[in-house]
Computed example of a mutant assay.
Amino acid sequence: MYCKVNQTECIACGICQLAAPNLFDYTNEGIAYFVPDNNSGRHPLNPQELIKMKIAYHKCPTGAIKRSVTPFPNS
């Protein structure tokens, strides 16, 4: 499983970082990003990361956290 944050949908509520502090952080503008791969969506999650990511994913009020079974395309 792969993950990234759609930063245009993020409202900087802080829920993702509370749920998974090792996976999510914030830019200087306060917008969340996925830490392990600097939000590229190309870092395969290990089982422990996957559990934390899914908690954050389900709690995100805007659905800004995206997940995929394949790496996200280069942007």
Score class of each variant (00 low, 15 high):
Ile15Met: 03
Thr62Glu: 07
Gln48Glu: 15
Asp25Cys: 06
Lys66Asp: 03
Cys60Phe: 00
Pro71Asn: 03
Asp25Val: 05
Ala56His: 03
Arg42Ile: 07
Asn74Asp: 13
Asn46Arg: 11
Pro73His: 03
Pro36Asp: 09
Pro61Leu: 01
Asn38Asp: 13
Gln17Val: 11
Ser68Ile: 06
Cys60Lys: 04
Asn38Tyr: 15
Lys59Ala: 14
Gln7Met: 13
Asn46Lys: 11
Met53Lys: 09
Met53Asp: 10
Gly63Tyr: 08
Gln7Tyr: 07
Lys4Asn: 08
Glu9Tyr: 09
Asn46Ala: 09
Arg42His: 05
Leu50Arg: 15
Ser75Cys: 10
Lys52Glu: 14
Ala56Thr: 06
Cys10Arg: 01
Ala20Gln: 04
Thr27Pro: 07
Met53Tyr: 09
Pro61Asn: 04
Asp37Ala: 04
Asn46Pro: 08
Ala64Val: 00
Asn38Trp: 14
Gly41Gln: 08
Pro73Arg: 02
Val5Tyr: 09
Pro21Met: 00
Ser40Lys: 14
Phe72Gln: 03
Pro47Leu: 14
Ile55Trp: 02
Val69Glu: 15
Thr27Ile: 07
Pro73Glu: 03
Thr8Leu: 15
Gln17Phe: 10
Cys3Ser: 13
Asp25Ser: 14
Asn22Val: 10
Ile55Asp: 05
Asp37Arg: 02
Cys3Asp: 12
Phe34Gly: 02
Asn22His: 05
Lys59Ser: 08
Asp37Trp: 02
Ala64Ile: 01
Lys66Glu: 13
Thr27Tyr: 13
Gly14Val: 01
Arg42Cys: 08
Pro47Arg: 11
Leu18Glu: 08
Asn38Ile: 15
Ala56Arg: 06
Cys3Ile: 13
Leu23Trp: 01
Pro36Arg: 01
Thr70Cys: 14
His58Gly: 12
Val35Arg: 05
Val35Trp: 04
Arg67Phe: 15
Pro71Thr: 00
Asn39Phe: 08
Gly30Tyr: 07
Asn38Arg: 12
Ala64Met: 03
Gln17Ser: 09
Pro44Asn: 10
Leu18Cys: 04
Tyr57Leu: 11
Pro21Trp: 02
Lys4Thr: 04
Leu23Pro: 02
Cys13Gln: 03
